[in-house]
C-alpha cells in the first residue's frame, strides 16, 4: 500500500473517532437523544473491511452501532450527524436516529436495534444480487452477541445452502453489553461456529487495519467469485461503554481496559506509520487540526442549523405516500 493511502486511512479512522467523540459531547448537551452506541476502539474493522469492498455498489448492513459503517460505506458525515440530532436533513430524515442510519445511495441498508435481524436481511440482499446476476455482494457486520440469536443459525444454513454472495463480519468485542463472551457462549471462537454450516471462516486481529484489510480482501474475493458466503471474525474491543449510561466497571477490569487501550487501532496504526516514516507527530497534529475544523464547520454546523422534521409530516413514510390507485383503491362502493 502506498503512503498516501496509509495516511488517508489513518485520517479516516481518526475522523470517525473525533466524529463520535463530538457526538458524545452533543449528547451530554442534550442535543442528541435516545441511545448513542459508540464504535470507539473498533474503527479498524469497519474501515478496513469496507476499504476492500466496492463502496456504493456492495450492500452494507449492521446493528445499532452503525455510525462508522454508514460513513465508510459512503453516507455523508454531516447527514449522519444531522440524523443523531433528529433533523430533517439527517440520513433517515430524523425518523431513525443513531441506531437506524440508512443511506441507499451508499447501499447502506440500515442499522438495526435487534441484533440478530441483519443476518437474514443481508442474506436477502445477497439473494437479490445473485438473482439479478450482478457482481455485488452483501456485507453484514454484527457483534459476537448476535451469534446467539436463532437467525444466526437459520441464516448461515440458507446462505450456505444457496451459495449467497454474503460476507458475515463478526466483530468480537468480547462482551454482549455486560456479559463476557465465555459467560454467554459455549464456543468462544466465533469463526468455529459456522463450520456446521459448511461456511469457510477465519479469525484475525481487528486492531491493526492492515491485517484487517489483507484478510478482508481474501474474504471479499471469495464471496464475489461466486463461491458462496464467508464468515470472518475480528478480535476487537469497545473502549467505551455499551451505550451512554453503561458503567463498564461492573463487568470488566481496569487492567483489561488498559491492555486494550494500548491496542487502540488509531494508536497501533499511527505508531506503525511513524515507525515507517510515512508521517511525523507534526503531520498528525496538522491532520487533527483539519479534522477538528471539518467536524465543527461542516458537520456540527450543518446538524445544528438544519430544521427539525415538520410535525405536519408525522404520518409520512408509514406506507407508500404516492400509491398507485390501481392496486390500492379505494374500492368504489356504489352506496345508497
Amino acid at each position: 500500500m502506498n503512503a498516501a493511502d496509509q495516511k488517508r486511512l489513518l485520517r479516516e479512522m481518526t475522523f470517525f473517532r473525533r466524529f463520535e467523540e463530538r457526538a458524545f459531547e452533543a449528547y451530554m448537551e442534550h442535543k442528541i437523544g435516545g441511545f448513542l452506541h459508540l464504535y470507539i476502539g473498533q474503527e479498524a474493522v469497519a474501515t478496513g473491511v469496507l476499504e476492500m469492498a466496492r463502496r456504493g455498489h456492495d450492500y452494507v448492513i449492521t446493528g445499532y452501532r452503525d455510525h462508522v459503517h454508514a460513513m465508510k460505506a459512503g453516507a455523508p458525515p454531516r447527514e449522519v450527524m444531522a440524523e443523531l440530532y433528529g433533523k430533517e436533513t439527517g440520513s433517515s430524515r430524523g425518523r431513525g436516529g443513531s441506531m437506524h442510519i440508512f443511506d441507499p445511495n451508499a447501499k447502506f441498508m440500515g442499522g438495526y436495534a435487534l441484533v440478530g435481524e441483519p443476518f437474514p436481511l443481508a442474506a436477502g440482499l445477497a439473494l437479490a444480487c445473485k438473482y439479478k446476476k450482478t457482481d455485488q455482494i452483501a456485507i453484514c457486520f454484527l457483534g459476537d452477541g448476535a451469534n446467539n440469536q436463532g437467525t444466526f443459525h437459520e441464516t448461515m444454513n440458507m446462505a450456505s445452502l444457496w451459495k449467497l454472495p454474503v460476507l458475515f463480519v463478526c466483530e468480537n468485542n468480547l462482551y454482549a453489553i455486560g456479559t463476557r463472551i465465555d459467560r454467554s457462549t459455549a464456543v468462544t471462537d466465533q469463526y468455529k461456529r459456522v463450520c456446521g454450516y459448511n461456511i469457510p471462516s477465519s479469525q484475525h486481529d481487528g486492531q491493526d487495519i492492515e491485517i484487517v484489510m489483507d484478510s478482508a480482501k481474501k474474504a471479499v474475493d471469495h464471496v464475489r467469485s461466486g463461491k458462496g458466503p464467508y464468515f470472518i471474525e475480528y478480535l476487537t474491543y469497545r473502549l467505551r461503554g455499551h451505550s451512554m449510561s453503561d458503567k463498564t466497571a461492573a463487568y470488566r477490569t481496569k487492567e483489561e481496559e488498559q491492555q486494550w487501550q494500548r491496542r487502540d487501532p488509531l494508536k497501533v496504526y499511527a505508531d506503525k506509520l511513524k515507525k515507517a516514516k510515512v508521517l511525523t507527530d507534526d503531520d498528525i497534529k496538522e491532520m487533527e487540526r483539519e479534522i477538528h475544523e471539518e467536524i465543527e464547520n461542516e458537520v456540527i454546523k450543518f446538524a445544528e442549523n438544519s430544521p427539525a422534521p415538520r410535525v405536519e409530516e408525522l404520518n409520512k413514510y408509514v406506507l407508500d405516500d404516492n400509491p398507485d390507485p390501481r392496486w390500492i383503491g379505494p374500492l368504489q362502493n356504489t352506496y345508497q
Binding site: 450492500y59 436481511l121 443481508a122 436477502g124 437467525t151
Partner: peptide, 21 residues
C-alpha cells in the same frame, strides 16, 4: 423451497425486497 426457519426466510424475503425484488 425453504428450510423450516420462518423468521429468517421472511427476513431474506424482506432483504431481497429492499434490493428490488
Amino acid at each position: 423451497d425453504t428450510p423450516i426457519s420462518e423468521n429468517s426466510f421472511c427476513g431474506i424475503g424482506i432483504g431481497a425486497s429492499m434490493a428490488g425484488l
